[in-house]
């Protein structure tokens, strides 16, 4: 019965990069969640215009994070977890940093990609 209740593995569509638009599409000092395959990824455009991207799921209890420009940090509303713009867990309960994604700019277009470790 347990075998029946255990859901079968679903083949995930392998996504290695996602184009999110042109450089100027996102305002400076803002963030957004994008779909990376079936995973949420947070993309932040810092106040100086630089782009960074991290896994969008809080390492604490799975909530989706957001960018707060008043704190200049990535924030999880579920339990007040905070990460700096390098993805490091700096305050609250998150036990680990956010996984980093790479950013490439080609022909004025911003591309988020999986960084090879």
């Amino acid at each position: 019965m347990f075998k029946y209740l255990e859901p079968p593995e679903v083949e995930e569509a392998k996504v290695s990069n996602v184009k999110i638009g042109e450089i100027e599409d996102m305002e400076k000092d803002s963030g957004k969640i994008i779909k990376f395959g079936n995973k949420p990824v947070i993309v932040v455009r810092k106040a100086d215009g630089e782009y960074v991207a991290f896994a969008g799921v809080c390492t604490h209890l799975d909530c989706i994070v957001q960018y707060r420009n008043d704190l200049e940090q990535i924030y999880c509303a579920c339990h007040n977890g905070r990460y700096d713009l390098n993805g490091r867990n700096v305050s609250g309960p998150p036990p680990a940093p956010l996984e980093k994604y790479g950013i490439a700019i080609k022909n004025n277009e911003v591309i988020v990609f999986v960084e090879k470790t």
Binding site: C63, I64, A77, C78, P94
Partner: peptide
């Protein structure tokens, strides 16, 4: 694919556990 809204809360009878979790460090 939307961030957790600020002020997310469980039902009141889970609140004391939810709140305690906020105070326990990572």
């Amino acid at each position: 694919f939307a961030p957790a809204p600020v002020g997310i809360k469980p039902e009141w009878y889970f609140m004391f556990m939810f709140q305690t979790l906020k105070y326990i460090p990572g």
